[in-house]
Simulated assay, not measured.
Amino acid sequence: MSKSFERYQRRKLISSYFSVILSIALVLFLLGVLGLLLLNTKKLADHFKEEITLSVFLKDTAKEVEISQLQKSLVMADYTKSAVFVSKDEAAEQHSADIGEDFLEFLGYNPLKNSIDVNLKADFVSTIQVDSIAQAIAGETFVEEVSYDKPTLDLLTKNVKRIGLIILIASALFTLIAVLLINSSIRLSIYSKRFIIKTMQMVGATKSFIRKPFIWTNIKLGMIGAVLALIGIAGLLLYLNQNFPQLGLLQDTLQLGLVFAGVFLAGILISLASTYFATQRFLNLRTDDLYY
Score class of each variant (00 low, 15 high):
residue 62 A to C: 06
residue 63 K to R: 14
residue 64 E to T: 08
residue 65 V to A: 15
residue 65 V to N: 13
residue 67 I to Q: 12
residue 68 S to P: 03
residue 68 S to A: 14
residue 69 Q to K: 15
residue 69 Q to V: 15
residue 69 Q to I: 14
residue 70 L to E: 02
residue 72 K to V: 08
residue 72 K to P: 04
residue 72 K to W: 03
residue 74 L to Y: 04
residue 75 V to M: 15
residue 75 V to Q: 14
residue 76 M to I: 06
residue 77 A to Y: 00
residue 77 A to S: 13
residue 78 D to M: 06
residue 79 Y to H: 11
residue 80 T to N: 08
residue 81 K to P: 06
residue 81 K to W: 00
residue 86 V to R: 10
residue 87 S to F: 05
residue 88 K to M: 04
residue 88 K to S: 05
residue 88 K to P: 01
residue 89 D to I: 07
residue 91 A to V: 05
residue 92 A to C: 10
residue 92 A to Q: 09
residue 94 Q to N: 05
residue 94 Q to M: 07
residue 95 H to W: 11
residue 95 H to N: 11
residue 96 S to G: 11
residue 97 A to E: 13
residue 98 D to Y: 13
residue 98 D to N: 14
residue 99 I to H: 12
residue 100 G to S: 10
residue 100 G to T: 09
residue 101 E to V: 12
residue 102 D to A: 15
residue 104 L to A: 09
residue 104 L to V: 10
residue 105 E to Y: 10
residue 106 F to V: 15
residue 110 N to K: 09
residue 112 L to T: 05
residue 112 L to Y: 05
residue 112 L to P: 02
residue 115 S to I: 02
residue 116 I to F: 06
residue 117 D to Q: 14
residue 117 D to M: 12
residue 118 V to D: 00
residue 118 V to C: 06
residue 119 N to I: 03
residue 120 L to P: 02
residue 122 A to W: 05
residue 122 A to I: 07
residue 127 T to N: 11
residue 128 I to K: 15
residue 129 Q to L: 13
residue 130 V to P: 08
residue 131 D to I: 00
residue 132 S to P: 00
residue 133 I to Q: 02
residue 133 I to M: 03
residue 134 A to N: 01
residue 135 Q to P: 00
residue 136 A to K: 13
residue 136 A to T: 12
residue 137 I to P: 04
residue 138 A to D: 05
residue 139 G to L: 11
residue 139 G to A: 14
residue 141 T to K: 15
residue 142 F to D: 03
residue 142 F to G: 06
residue 143 V to I: 07
residue 143 V to G: 04
residue 144 E to D: 12
residue 146 V to R: 00
residue 146 V to L: 01
residue 148 Y to L: 14
residue 149 D to W: 10
residue 151 P to H: 12
residue 151 P to R: 14
residue 151 P to E: 11
residue 154 D to W: 07
residue 155 L to W: 11
residue 156 L to G: 11
residue 157 T to L: 12
residue 160 V to N: 05
residue 161 K to Q: 13
residue 162 R to F: 03
residue 162 R to W: 03
residue 162 R to S: 10
residue 162 R to A: 09
residue 162 R to T: 13
residue 162 R to Y: 01
residue 163 I to S: 12
residue 166 I to D: 00
residue 167 I to S: 07
residue 167 I to C: 07
residue 167 I to F: 09
residue 168 L to Q: 13
residue 171 S to C: 10
residue 172 A to K: 01
residue 172 A to G: 08
residue 172 A to Q: 00
residue 174 F to D: 02
residue 176 L to P: 01
residue 177 I to A: 14
residue 178 A to P: 08
residue 178 A to Q: 07
residue 179 V to W: 07
residue 180 L to C: 09
residue 180 L to N: 06
residue 181 L to W: 02
residue 181 L to M: 14
residue 181 L to P: 02
residue 181 L to N: 03
residue 182 I to H: 07
residue 186 I to V: 11
residue 187 R to F: 04
residue 187 R to C: 04
residue 191 Y to L: 13
residue 191 Y to C: 05
residue 197 I to S: 00
residue 199 T to P: 05
residue 200 M to H: 02
residue 201 Q to D: 04
residue 201 Q to W: 01
residue 202 M to H: 08
residue 202 M to D: 04
residue 204 G to K: 01
residue 205 A to E: 08
